[in-house]
Amino acid sequence: MGNCFKTPSTDDISLLRGNESQEGSDQSLGPPPPYQERVPVFHPSPNVSRPANQLSEEEQIKIAKRLGLISHLPSGVYDGSSKKGKECAICMCDFVLGEGLRFLPCMHTYHKTCIDDWLMRSFTCPSCMEPVDAALLTTYETN
């Protein structure tokens, strides 16, 4: 199965072992370090949390598609214009000049990091519950 999420393997260590005779003692190498790399956690559906290396192929496709859709949503930087509201409804903090924002098709605005985290779980606007892809389609149709 095509797993796009790369997991560390121990192959490179075994390759190193091939040179042991030249390097001398293999004791210096010691046991491999304990597995410590942090695997990113995804949420294929709300309430489901799974490390990247335990996702089914179907879930990987869903997540990849979702990442693609999110990257197409307009984003920008807070320039102090207050007409779009000044507080992020997710973290309840005020927007600060220069912070990254994401603009949803329903015209609601959030911190980019806050809303992207949510959109990976549910593709809906937290404030109006409008499905983001449906809103995207109607935006395209009216244009």
């Binding site: 709300p46 409804a89 997710i90 806050c114 937290p126 404030s127 519950m129």
Partner: peptide, 8 residues
Amino acid sequence: KDKWSPAL
């Protein structure tokens, strides 16, 4: 449950 939103 399923209708949770972080704006709540």
